[in-house]
Design a protein around this nucleic acid. Structure first.
Lengths: 194, 194, 194, 194
DNA sequence: AATGAATGAGGTTTCATTCAT
DNA sequence: CATGAATGAAACCTCATTCAT
């Protein structure tokens, strides 16, 4: 970001631009957005856009960052069962994920699809961290003396498996239901972790 | 394809163009390719390109199709153990997958990354079919009277989980080894199927 | 024309190409025709096209020439009243003109519209010659000793007035009928000649 | 028009582009103009051209519109004799027409020649309206109780006859003089109207 | 003679970014 | 600070014409 917006007016402008970016992505896809369209949607001039963001990419980065934080917040508020019911918690997270992917008119979906041209690591880190925390709590209880092997590898595998399977499913949900996918993923993950 | 290449000369040109497309994608990424660059790489004029392909997209489609067929062929030649050792076969396929993703200077990697803007279904169909066949053989032997539930859902989940986890891993292999990923995926898949 | 087609085969080819040009013009307009389309319509290769015609323009020229001759022939067969009824003969020619412009799916229409980029003089010459003959016969009878002044100017004015008014009318016949136009033109021409 | 030119600067640019279009048409013919050439002639970048006009066609339309308005203005200023001398007024209009067609290095000529691919209706409407007004005034005076029949048909015929005969004459004035054509047309028109 | 594959100049349009006001 | 007019590189695609087979 080119300039730290200290003043209230500027802060609003930055926010408007980031939200406009989100809207534009939903409307035209990540590849279809243009700076003009974003600026117009934000009710701001292109010049102002470049006052606060180095280039188009910076805008998207800021958006991804913002969403990542929101997701992190939401994950913290997830009512995980604290008694160590793994299956229950995994299913909860998966449902949370589906909720996310289906929200905001497919904004998350479009972003995950294009993860490779985005600083998605930030997001994946957050998700993986969440899984990590969940797992750690769980395993601390159950395998306290016998810690699970390769936990970070498992978390990596699970995070990516779950996320991309969901995205792929949403893209072509013809031959199965979301419930089936949720159950299947839960089975797989729980089986892998136990 | 605009024109059926009947003559040997034409066939060569079509091949050269498809190969040039592959090269260009490796060099510049799927989004970075241009018709001029492809034609130049193929040692051919732009006009010729358009004599055989309707547009840029058609070129990429042809490439994907060709690769899909090659993969299908290669999968058939995989020395699967016929005695029903699931773990062994799963590991074999995963290693095959890694081999593919690491081959051709990352061509497959780039294509999988951009799956959403490609006719990837074709490829995924092939992979899923392969898993399907493998599983079917396996389960016919072991659970003949008790067929596995939701096989197509499982296959879908497994195919996507394995493939995208591998792709994501290759993108940032810093904190774990390919062996660890392979083992982890194999564990997960086998656990899920048994 | 590049080559005089002496052999029967060649003659057929030239004819086919000219007819294909006509068809192409009807289908796509004079500006829309391409050598490939013409050759294909004629069932011949582009190479052959260039064997007999210097370039695209030559094809159109040949077509115009052919049509001009046909028109000249048809005009000769027009059943002009020989008793010197000018109005009758003028109306006859105008109706003949409308017939022409409405024939061949608008081929003549399209050609007249684009007269400025064609060797239309050839055609206009023929028409003017026809009017000229008609008038001469008429005036020889009636004004034998008192020849009409500026006959060639009048013929020029009349030919162009009649032809382009008809073409313009066909282009947008909403607010009047062909009969009205025919009567009006006849009135004007006869008035001008008498 | 893509953007309403509110500022003075923009207005100048739009004008420059329209004038450049006129110049380009004179230099290269209506079919020969290119966006780059127009932009260059206007001393402006292609991008700017597209900021104010949707496409090439829009430019030509704007030009035609502008000229049509100018013609309408000029026609209003024509010193028509108000005492009802039809011949005099007709000749005046025809001379005005020749003046127009010979002005601006043949710009009008080229436009009329290509009337079929232009929104020429606008222009013809203006001319026909002008004739219509002229005629109406005239006939109101002279045939007040006995209004002329089919006035709109006559106007249509006359407008097109006069205009295209003049255009055709300018294209090949070898065998007659402008005076002869003017006199001839005037004779014909007056004869037709009386 | 006939073919049709190959050429490549040339045209239209988009859009990220800058900079004078 | 904000504006938005201006820029111009760069991409896609067409089609008249040639020439090796």
């Amino acid at each position: 970001m080119r300039k730290k917006p200290k003043q209230k007016r500027s802060r609003q402008m930055v926010d408007a631009l980031i939200e406009a970016t989100a809207t534009a992505i939903v409307e035209r896809g990540l590849e279809g957005i243009t700076t003009h369209h974003i600026a117009e949607t934000a009710g701001v001039s292109v010049g102002s856009l470049y006052q606060y963001f180095d280039d188009k990419e910076a805008l998207v980065e800021a958006l991804v960052d913002k969403l990542a934080n929101e997701i992190a917040q939401a994950l913290l508020r997830l009512p995980m069962s604290q008694d160590g019911d793994l299956r229950c918690n995994v299913a909860l997270i998966i449902q949370f994920g589906f909720g996310l992917l289906n929200s905001r008119d497919g904004l998350y979906l479009e972003l995950v699809r294009n993860w490779h041209s985005l600083p998605t690591d930030r997001v994946m880190d957050i998700l993986q961290q969440s899984f990590m925390d969940l797992s750690r709590v769980y395993f601390l209880k159950h395998y306290q003396n016998n810690p699970i092997q390769d936990l970070h590898v498992r978390i990596f595998i699970i995070s990516n498996s779950v996320m991309f399977t969901m995205v792929r499913f949403i893209g072509q949900p013809q031959m199965m239901t979301q419930e089936e996918i949720t159950r299947g993923l839960t089975d797989m993950v729980v089986g892998y972790l136990e």
